[in-house]
Design a binder for these strands. Structure first.
Lengths: 249, 249
DNA sequence: TCTCTATTCCTGGTCCAACAAATACAAAGT
DNA sequence: ACTTTGTATTTGTTGGACCAGGAATAGAGA
């Protein structure tokens, strides 16, 4: 089975729910997407102009623009004046943005997110202990050290996330990493709130160091314990007054 | 902190990267979104017509339509002829579709997805064993039984996914479940390919039954072993000729 | 009065033409 | 060689037009 066959199959899955209803805009979205694939365009390459696309696919420029808005929302292309639509690599950003949008409409409990992190970060312990080199663990130290260099709450939250992200990265699974990154806005928000109440980077750095030490010692029990305690610890500050159950508005 | 304050904070994070560049379309997207929130519309409620929106926000109908295309791509609204745009609950579908879109453009290895499933499904074992009632486990039997009632490969794949989804559901974590569901198109595709080569629902049902039995016996070691083997087993069929490393085009 | 039908109205879907704003590219000037 | 300027092309936005089809309503018939 070729790549394209797999692609087609995967696309058929996603488009299966819509029966035969094809608007010109939807058709254009597919056609433009096919065009991208057929021409083997790489990131940064430009598409034909809106008028050319319209002529090529027998559609008006407005229709082309509506299709391009959808592609743009998907992060597939970026439209720049005078240049036209160029192939973009902002797709993951688009997914993240859309995911955050979801949390706007029906916000997930922060507790829930911490529970997710616990499952994931504990779960990857075995793999990290078995398959991670000393160099990779040393890299964790580098990432962890950055938290001492920032002063503001925002920077600390980002450094904190970077550490946990690096941890997840060590699991060597792209899908897991992508999913974990989806939660970045929520996670950093949790961290920000926690650190605003108790702005001590030293403690975070220390706890992270202990976690790294457990990994270096290849002690999976200690790692699981430390990670769990670390995540639960942060939760007590968030949970007190920032959970969705404690509504004030 | 109120809900809205948290919402604003979360939104500010996602919108931080775009500096001050606001096109009329983007402005409209925000305005319409605010309109939804201000009017406290519920799923199914209708928005003003395109012409009314245009008049309301001082924009041409074409511009309104482009904004609506974006909202539609986000799954926030659904546009139905003659009815107009109505508030939609298809947001999760949109996220899933967008996620699948990514796998079209730069496909993640199927192996990677199976690795993710292994991390997740093994990782939730402890929680399930500790916190799941006998009734919940009995429900797993019900879900598992459905795979015997379908004949076609497609239905079997969906039933298979439904079982694993139910398993993840038992972890009691909404975030995890949402993330797992994101991968539905890819996972069912893996299953479909595997079952197309070896269409035996009996075996799948049997293996699932063993997994359920391990949970009922509260045997975490057996569960971890069975789940791992189950996922690796399916992988051998997929990996042989459908991995992205085995390209033919 | 009630029911069924035909007509009209309104809405989204698509297209066209035009102008404004932005900018890549080339030509001209230093 | 470098800078400035000008121009042409492209996107951004607008207003208008038409069509197909569903919704609401008025009117005919029982």
């Amino acid at each position: 089975m070729s790549d394209d066959a797999i692609l087609m199959a995967a696309m058929a899955v996603t488009a299966a729910q819509e029966p035969a209803k094809v608007s010109a805009v939807d058709r254009l979205v597919d056609q433009i997407r096919d065009l991208l694939r057929d021409r083997n365009l790489v990131i940064g390459d430009a598409l034909p102009t809106e008028r050319e696309l319209g002529e090529l696919f027998q559609a008006a420029r407005n229709t082309v623009r509506e299709a391009l808005q959808i592609l743009k929302a998907y992060g597939i292309v970026e439209v720049r004046p005078k240049i036209g639509a160029v192939l973009s690599d902002r797709h993951e950003d688009a997914v993240r943005k859309l995911f955050a949008f979801q949390n706007d409409i029906s916000p997930a409990s922060f507790l829930d997110v911490q529970g997710y992190r616990k499952i994931v970060e504990v779960g990857i312990g075995d793999h990290i202990i078995l398959h991670t080199s000393a160099d990779d663990l040393a890299h964790l130290d580098v990432v962890n050290a950055r938290i001492l260099e920032v002063e503001d709450v925002d920077g600390a939250a980002h450094c904190d996330f970077a550490f946990h992200e690096a941890l997840v990265m060590l699991a060597g699974n792209r899908t897991l990493l992508t999913n974990y990154r989806l939660l970045q806005p929520v996670i950093t928000h949790i961290m920000r709130v926690g650190k605003a109440k108790r702005p001590v980077q030293i403690d975070t750095h220390q706890t992270h160091s202990e976690i790294i030490a457990a990994l270096k010692a290849r002690d999976r029990v200690a790692y699981a314990y430390l990670i769990s305690r670390h995540l639960e610890y942060g939760l007590q500050f968030v949970g007190s007054e920032n959970t969705w159950s404690a509504r004030s508005g």
